[in-house]
């Protein structure tokens, strides 16, 4: 039957209806197949985001629309200035530390023969695999000023104890340290994958040309990894800015509010103090900062892609 249909002249083939024509389009099929995902995104991303924006524009009792009032109010508060500073300090320092350690570990791992890499790779991934709340509790015990294992060691070698979570400087350091410990394996695994995809011939050619290790890194490895570095930094920046667990468990924002970041401050203002609109406004402050960072990072990635395509 199908063979017979195929041999019929076009003019006597039955005309397909408009609906059938739309149905047969590839784009229609694509939309239909993506529909469940689109609905899921609408439900789990767009709706909560829109609702958060709506909430952030209400008064404290959620009975009146105040427009940008909550945002303007926050920008006038000294404590919120501190929160912006701390969020940026925490996210930028932790991402730089994670990227540097991940990059170094990936290179060290890359020179180890593949059959010996497996165990080390698995061990190094443990911090990233263990649920963050649990591992942070472990760190909290290590930092606990009264029973800290670190202080016990310091005591043992005659060094004065450190108020890891009670002193502003040390508390900030401790938060960044835990985030770096947790996030470095992600960078390592991404950079290791990128390293493995760099054609070996490039390194051979560089070696023949007499390039030093530093020159190979500077002129071969880094240019080949620039896109993956940019994407991982962007991804990590978003996740680190939105972090809640580490700060909440280690310091809950103290001492003297000097370790609060957007998420913990939003929780304290919105849920604990019963001002949900102001809490929503605090959390939305992440949006412009991350949007600007995303714009520049993704623009760089697209520019390099175009250059590579043209080249």
């Amino acid at each position: 039957m199908s063979a017979a249909t195929a041999t019929l002249p076009t003019r006597i083939r039955p005309q397909a209806g408009r609906f059938t024509r739309i149905w047969r389009r590839r784009s229609t099929a694509a939309v239909l197949m993506c529909l469940p995902l689109i609905l899921l995104l609408l439900l789990l991303v767009v709706y909560p985001a829109a609702y958060a924006i709506y909430l952030a524009m209400l008064n404290k009792r959620m009975t009146a629309f105040v427009g940008m009032g909550n945002f303007v109010f926050l920008l006038k508060r000294a404590t919120f200035h501190l929160v912006i500073f701390q969020s940026c300090l925490f996210a930028v320092s932790a991402v730089i530390a994670k990227a540097s350690i991940g990059f170094t570990l990936a290179h060290l791992m890359h020179v180890i023969p593949p059959n010996r890499q497996r165990l080390l790779r698995g061990l190094l991934l443990i911090p990233w695999v263990v649920p963050l709340a649990l591992s942070t509790l472990g760190w909290w015990w290590l930092f606990d000023p009264s029973y800290s294992a670190f202080n016990w060691i310091l005591d043992g070698i005659g060094v004065p104890q450190v108020a890891w979570l009670g002193n502003t400087g040390w508390a900030r350091f401790s938060m960044i340290l835990v985030n770096t410990w947790y996030g470095s394996p992600f960078f390592m695994i991404m950079y290791l994958a990128a390293l493995k995809s760099v054609p070996h011939e490039l390194f051979e050619a560089a070696a023949i040309d007499g390039a030093s290790a530093w020159q190979k890194l500077r002129f071969v490895t880094l240019p080949m990894m620039r896109n993956i570095i940019s994407i991982t930094v962007l991804f990590s920046l978003i996740v680190t800015f939105a972090d809640f667990t580490i700060v909440r468990i280690l310091t809950a924002g103290g001492p003297q509010d000097t370790t609060h970041i957007f998420a913990t401050y939003a929780f304290e203002v919105g849920i604990q103090s019963g001002d949900i609109p102001l809490g929503a406004a605090v959390s939305l402050f992440m949006l412009p900062i991350l949007a600007v960072a995303s714009f520049f990072i993704l623009r760089g990635v697209m520019r390099r892609n175009r250059e590579m395509a043209a080249g």
């Binding site: 000023p145 009264s146 029973y147 108020a163 979570l165 009670g166 310091t251």
Partner: peptide, 20 residues
């Protein structure tokens, strides 16, 4: 104690219970 600035609701309990 020098760590009182980082106390949570369990810290004082632990200090008493541990005999410190």
């Amino acid at each position: 104690p020098p760590d009182v600035f980082s106390y949570d609701d369990a810290s004082n309990n632990r200090a008493l219970i541990s005999g410190k």
